[in-house]
Nucleic acid binder design. Sequence first.
DNA 1: GGCTTATGCGCAG
DNA 2: TGCGCCTAAGCCA
Length: 260
Amino acid sequence: MPEGHTIHRLARDHRPLLVGRVVSLASPQGKFADGAALLSGRTCTRIEPYGKHLWYLFEGDLSLHVHLGLYGKWAVGAAAPPEVRGQLRLRMTAGDAWLDLRGPTACEVHTRADHKAVLARLGPDPLRRTDDGELAWQRLSRSRTSIGQLLMDQTVLAGVGNVYRAELLFRARLSPFTPGRDVPRETWDAMWADLRALMRNGVKTNRIVTTGARAPVRREDAHYVYRRAGQPCRLCGTEVRTELMAGRNLFWCPTEQLEP
DNA sequence: GGCTTATGCGCAG
DNA sequence: TGCGCCTAAGCCA
């Protein structure tokens, strides 16, 4: 489930397998053959997540840039890697570990300049301790675009996807259709703080749970509104609604979530 | 086993 | 605005 928390979790899980080690790269599918050859045999120095992007830095100022998109997935294991089958974009091996990447939107070699260029167009990432919501506020508080769309705009905020969007707005009791510039400052401050807490919990548990349900959380108890169209709102019983907003399914409760 | 759906995003038009 | 990427889980039979 690749929203920002997934990417930060992957970084955390992959670091002990790769950082400080010589890594071999291959692209059985062939689509990344040149890049794999270029990076193979180098030592991985650092793994850096930012929003939904992930960089594996190697010596020589080159990095592997991965964006999972909607379908991308990593599989990881120790000892003998499984027999290659299907479309395997990238296999990395280091020591005992193997890491297989399938279906990513982006898997490419970045120079330091490429890396910087991507970072330059991303908004603050709630999962980065030193980032703060001020930059996002400057953008959204001047925009007539709906808060529902702004939250998904990676140049405003990095790492939020469709699940966090829907759940954050519900928890703030804010209508997704509210123009950015009509969002009260204190509402935004509370949303930023809430988002940080939600996403940190997402990294820890490797899933998105926003209802405060206690573990073990059943899938149907994990969210307030996301993918609950037609079901009763957990607070007021009103049917949760859905509608396409900028090509993505939006979910909200029309009773609980009002414009300010 | 087949069909539907999806947490993303760049591109054509 | 709609399509294509390309994968896997969830659902049905």
